[in-house]
């Protein structure tokens, strides 16, 4: 394997890392405030779809913005249900995933191209040339976002408020923090990042949207969040590791010599590694005490 092949693996890895990392960082912000959103998969799928619509109407940037808006709207619904209406976060999340599956498949039929819909070339985000392949500019955004999030969570007053809300909503409430509002804002912001990730998949990475373009990435992001222990920098690392194992698995499966190992076992690698990493990491991880529970003032 020479340098250009390593370069190629790296580029495939970076592209696969983006949606997982962005979604995970968004979820970290939401979980820090105490909301656990397993509807990320649905947000990715829906915003990948609306992102294409936006890109067709007004170009790549509009597509990304529409995707972020979609993420915001879905998360807003999610967080209203789970803050002011004290709903069940898991059930809401599962519902969002089911809804997205139907909504996108239905929408594709309405667009007249059931199954998939391409982004026209003029609607694609311009990529950067390198000797080993083209790089999406969103990769650089993804490399910055975790650092900003880390700074925000640990070095700002707002970050402290967020942590207080997730850790002890009662105390935060006594201290005059509007717990539900903080949670709503945090989750909505997380949704915006997931929306960006979804739109990235269609508008920048793949160039089209299909019925199941998210392909489990929302769930992988959740696992990454667990691995990270709500540290955005570790989420970046986790997303990179998952992307790396995914691209290595693809690499190995291609080779003629790999016929000796059934491809199904190679394809399992990223998930097995995630499982191992999560169960190894879990000992040191502490999550906010009120994570997943609605705040009910007594």
């Amino acid at each position: 394997m020479d340098i250009s092949q390593i370069g190629s693996i790296l580029i495939i890895t970076l592209h696969a890392m983006v949606p997982i990392c962005l979604t995970a960082v968004g979820e970290i912000i939401g979980e820090t405030a105490g909301l656990f959103n397993i509807g990320l998969e649905g947000i990715l799928l829906t915003s990948a779809f609306t992102g294409v619509l936006g890109a067709k109407a007004g170009g790549a940037v509009v597509g990304l913005l529409v995707g972020m808006g979609t993420g915001a709207i879905i998360s807003l619904i999610f967080s209203v249900i789970n803050t002011y209406w004290k709903g069940n976060q898991m059930i809401t999340g599962i519902g969002i995933n089911l809804f997205a599956l139907g909504f996108v498949a239905f929408g594709l039929i309405v667009l007249g191209s059931p199954g998939f819909h391409p982004v026209p070339p003029e609607g694609r985000l311009v990529a950067i040339r390198t000797p080993w392949g083209r790089l999406s500019p969103i990769i650089f955004v993804t490399l910055i976002v975790p650092f900003v999030a880390h700074w925000f969570l640990n070095r700002t007053r707002a970050g402290l408020i967020l942590k207080a809300t997730g850790e002890s909503p009662e105390a935060a409430d006594v201290a005059g923090i509007r717990v539900n509002l903080v949670r709503l804002l945090a989750t909505t912001f997380g949704g915006i990042l997931a929306g960006l990730a979804g739109a990235y998949i269609s508008v920048s990475w793949i160039g089209s949207v299909t019925k199941q373009i998210s392909a489990g990435r929302g769930f992988i992001s959740l696992a990454t969040v667990v691995f990270s222990g709500l540290n955005p920098l570790l989420a970046l690392l986790g997303a990179f590791v998952f992307g790396l194992f995914e691209s290595i698995a693809i690499w190995i499966r291609n080779l003629p010599a790999a016929r000796m190992i059934p491809w199904q076992f190679v394809a399992m690698i990223p998930y097995v590694v995630t499982l191992l990493v999560v169960s190894g990491a879990i000992g040191r991880v502490r999550f906010p005490k009120s994570l997943g529970k609605p705040y009910i003032r007594e």
Partner: peptide, 21 residues
């Protein structure tokens, strides 16, 4: 009518079920 509608309906039902209010 595309049968995907059924999944949309299912999703909204589940979301609604999450609301104790």
């Amino acid at each position: 009518t595309p049968l995907e509608v059924v999944r949309v309906v299912t999703g909204v039902i589940v979301i609604t079920m999450a609301i104790p209010e």
